[in-house]
Design a protein around this nucleic acid. Sequence first.
DNA 1: AGTCTAATTTTAAGTCGCAAACTAAGGTTC
DNA 2: GAACCTTAGTTTGCGACTTAAAATTAGACT
Lengths: 407, 407
Amino acid sequence: MAPKRTTVRDLRRQNRATLLSTLFFDGPLSRYELSRLSGLSAATVSNVTAELVEDGLVVEAGSVDSDGGRPRVLLRVNPAFGHVVGVDVGETGIKVELFDLALTQLAARDHALSPSSPGPVASLIASSVREVVAAAGIPVSTVLGVGIGVPGTVEQGASAVVHAPTIGWDGVRLEELIRAAGGTWPLYVENGAKTQGQAEMWFGAGRGARHVVIALIGSGVGAAVVTDGGVYRGATSSAGEWGHTTIAYGGRPCRCGALGCLEAYVGAEGILDRYRKARGRNLSGGDEQSTVAALITAAEHSRTAARVLDETAGYLGAGIANLVNLFNPERIVLGGWAGLALGAHQLDRIVAATRAHALRHPFDQISIRLGHFGPDAVAVGAATLPVGALLEGASDPRKPAPHPNIA
Amino acid sequence: MAPKRTTVRDLRRQNRATLLSTLFFDGPLSRYELSRLSGLSAATVSNVTAELVEDGLVVEAGSVDSDGGRPRVLLRVNPAFGHVVGVDVGETGIKVELFDLALTQLAARDHALSPSSPGPVASLIASSVREVVAAAGIPVSTVLGVGIGVPGTVEQGASAVVHAPTIGWDGVRLEELIRAAGGTWPLYVENGAKTQGQAEMWFGAGRGARHVVIALIGSGVGAAVVTDGGVYRGATSSAGEWGHTTIAYGGRPCRCGALGCLEAYVGAEGILDRYRKARGRNLSGGDEQSTVAALITAAEHSRTAARVLDETAGYLGAGIANLVNLFNPERIVLGGWAGLALGAHQLDRIVAATRAHALRHPFDQISIRLGHFGPDAVAVGAATLPVGALLEGASDPRKPAPHPNIA
DNA sequence: AGTCTAATTTTAAGTCGCAAACTAAGGTTC
DNA sequence: GAACCTTAGTTTGCGACTTAAAATTAGACT
């Protein structure tokens, strides 16, 4: 029940982590400002930052005049301290991106992937990481870790186990496969929706808030729930399966086998299928993404298209209202390619539908915004995983704790 | 982002709290076992427990032989250290119960309440607390605090603000009113569903689990969400409004004004109304509670009644499945008077409906159980609030921190 | 009485953060 | 341009904490 911390040394780790995180997120700061922000005494800040500078994690970054006294020396996290890699394992391909510690992209690779059985994917990941490292011309030893976002649930443990029905993975020990393919970096495997959520929280539309739900709509529908600043995982890391919540009891069949799931109404496939049924014929081809774009454009002239989109906004609003009522967040971020497309043209209607279905009190607390990230969200979010582990206080970054989740 | 703890003294408080909580929840334990359970060294345990014994919070409770060595001395929380009061503010009356620290009931009072405007309720609470204290014959100074469960949302802050539309409260500063009526005890105000949840977590069907959703069905429908051992509140303490999540888009009107809320289908009122509509006439009168009981009995003979209950199980299962998909708990506890009544006769069907609507992976994690508490749940849970504050480390129990939530 | 085992307590050592005193680095005043 | 002010950051001394190891305590067994 009660939290559990013990030795006086954990205290040091804790304070070290607090200062490092503050520097990372709130930009260059002087020791003096750090002291104010962290609540630690100036003496301790001085002491701990000296250690951080010694370790090379933090560097001085110029100084700024104070009015009439000694100028403040600014400190910031050393972007060159090390590098991180983010991998987006998608249904049709993988994306591998290399960043410095400030999450500036240094190199990237895309690879299509037809069969997507686990072994080849693991090999491809391992070789692609080596590729981007070579492309950026950095020593491989500076890679602090590789974060991997996968399209399914991840059971965290000694070695992460991935269940991803949409690509036919069931109980895949991805970490072990990548190690077998020669990957020696610390690995962090996480559900793709959760890494997208983390990207929005760290650098996007979620910044500054502590209770946020990131609603993601693409071909499928998911959500990342952030409670009190951290991604919520639930008992076995599969929390946030918003797409398969029932919104219309006994309604449209969903690919998951149930009836009336939200995804069957507002997922890209669901939207197009409803349009198809309403219209009696298919929209002009292309991939899903461009077909949805075409539908949105068509809505300017076609009553049917407009009606389908209006209904979509209604269902989506009800779905968002469920999130609002259950989680009482301070902010909702709408993301995913379809979410961004719908949001750009229909945000007012979506908000109105949300208001109609949510309780007044929690609704009054929220602001609904569009996500800042496009197709890079998963990879960027995945790359934040090793950075997060570093910030949380793995003092030896190349040997991090089992997983940030555990700590 | 990062948690924030500072001085070496907090460490002591922390460890003190850990040991006290362990003793409270895991019964009498020897110092040796405490050391194992808490991970603290034997020396520290000895040191801290000495302090706890000195303060009167902990007493020795016999000893138990070890095989061949010095016998272990058992320690437990001193039930007589102080007393706590739990208050259940309901829609039709208030219930005030006095407990010792082991949550053994020592006295109780019920009062009907017709107008329920805030002032008189506050006075009634203050006088009832004095009544139960007198009835139990304990000195008033041993009252460590008064917990109050209210039927609405509570904004925690310097002074709790209550919004309870069903009894016409809007922005009521209950604490201040009780103080004005002469109540000098530390007060803890919390939403009634959340106190019920805490009662089940501490002493009922939630014991031992860390991720639980307690689904409460009475006249209305609510839920208490427990994540990682603590009651989840969200940004403004109104999380868990399960009753007003949309389950049937465009469906039955709900008293909240929206269409298709879960409450409109599985709340007692919703069930009875659906039966009325199906049957074309009312069920024989009485209060809601006995009418529902009558309906359940009638289902043995009446096809209509059976069908209404079957449908109820279906809707309820879908609603529970939404909780499972979103929160991924390890356990669902079904409570509230109507929830217990339905569960006693229909649990199989409810579980089956849940399976039909939930994703396989999270569904496989859960066990669905009935709550252990009946009408006392709110008051017992409310009484746990001051106890929780004591366990969390308010070293001077009569002057607790603003609210356990804040810490 | 002496010995064995296991549970606590005492002791000595090492860490930590903080308040206060102190140093650094620049501007202002006369 | 020397004395003084102001603000930033560092050093010092101290009290508080946990721990490992040594010492003590308390029964059981011989």
